[in-house]
């Protein structure tokens, strides 16, 4: 097995597939993860994403999953797969796959910048996507903001990295501790829809806290306490707690409950947007008084200048 730890290549590097003899050119480094490095590349005139794998075996598994999804109809979940091949370099053989280049902002960036209302919108979108994925017999596994992308334009959410996708009933292939229900003591690592739904809850907690909170000695108590007491999460605690405890068997049911809570919480809490409008109004008032003083100063100066010119000419 050739483990290639250093997968950094200069822009312009030409990659030639051993089996299919296709040529690709690396354009820009996009990111590195546990499994490999992704580059923006060029296939003739088309922009593509090229993933160079550290371990060829795990790349093959991901490619298998992507091929499965190609057969599905409806909204695409992830990028289309164009090619997968081996590249012979001096340092050894590197497995790579070529995918559709998805242009957008990663969800982890978006959660940091946008108000919490947006998190709920993303969640509703994500749950719809998850239902589709679960229908095909797979769960996402390694669900986290870094693996999701918001397309540009339109904010449609798409899944980027299917390395953790696992057939339902098996053991989860890849996970990240913070988003893993086993790590928090809320259940097994068997691939079932509720595993992904727990990760959704952790994405909401991440968005509310603004960071990955550290686990204490009693993780279950800690999470329940956090959800019940955090001002951003409390309005949705019924859905969140159900998902956390694994009570939802499908993403659709969770989505329905969350949507209902989102719609009702708006009505009972109408002060928020109003107070924002008030702030804007006071700003406007102070702006207008600023203009007044400027006008006054300008006219005084102008009068003084005219008087000066008249005196000088006389």
């Amino acid at each position: 097995m050739t483990a290639q730890d250093n997968l950094h290549f200069a822009p312009g590097t030409l990659i030639i597939g051993k089996w299919h003899q296709n040529h690709y050119q690396l354009v820009k480094w996009l990111g590195s993860g546990a499994q490999g490095t992704v580059y923006l590349g060029r296939d003739g005139r088309r922009s593509v994403a090229i993933k160079l794998a550290k371990d060829r075996a795990s790349l093959i598994s991901e490619v298998n999953v992507l091929k499965q999804f190609e057969k599905l109809r409806g909204d695409p979940l992830g990028p289309s797969l164009y090619d997968s091949d081996d590249w012979l370099t001096r340092g050894g053989t590197i497995g790579f796959c070529v995918m559709e280049y998805l242009d957008g902002v990663s969800l982890s960036e978006a959660l940091k910048r946008k108000p919490f209302d947006w998190t709920l919108v993303y969640m509703l979108q994500l749950l719809k996507q998850l239902q589709q994925l679960h229908n095909s017999g797979y769960i996402f596994g390694d669900l986290k903001p870094e693996n999701l992308i918001l397309m540009h334009p339109g904010h449609a959410i798409r899944c980027l990295d299917f390395g953790g996708a696992t057939r339902i009933g098996r053991s989860v292939r890849e996970y990240t501790e913070f988003y893993d229900r086993g790590y928090w003591g809320f259940g097994s690592r068997r691939a079932e829809p509720s595993y992904d739904l727990f990760a959704c809850v952790m994405i909401m907690i991440y968005a509310a806290a603004g960071k990955r909170i550290a686990r204490t000695n009693e993780p279950q108590v800690q999470l329940i306490h956090f959800v019940k007491n955090h001002p951003k999460l409390a309005p949705y605690r019924k859905t969140v707690m159900n998902a956390m405890r694994g009570n939802y068997s499908t993403a659709d049911i969770m989505r329905r409950d969350l949507l209902q809570e989102v719609m009702t919480s708006r009505q009972s809490n109408p002060q928020m947007p109003q107070s924002r409008r008030n702030v804007r109004k006071t700003n406007a008032v102070s702006n207008r008084s600023g203009w007044k003083s400027a006008w006054l100063a300008a006219s005084v100066l102008l009068t003084a200048y005219i008087v000066f010119v008249i005196v000088y000419v006389m």
Binding site: M1, W19, R56, A57, I60, S61, V63, N64, K67, S84, D85, D86, T93, G95, R170, S171
Partner: peptide
């Protein structure tokens, strides 16, 4: 296994996964 073309290797890896599970 490493010397097989990617398509065939994919099938072998499915078997490996299956056995591992």
């Amino acid at each position: 296994v490493e010397d097989l073309p990617p398509e065939k290797r994919g099938k072998v890896m499915e078997v490996v996964d299956e056995v591992g599970e």
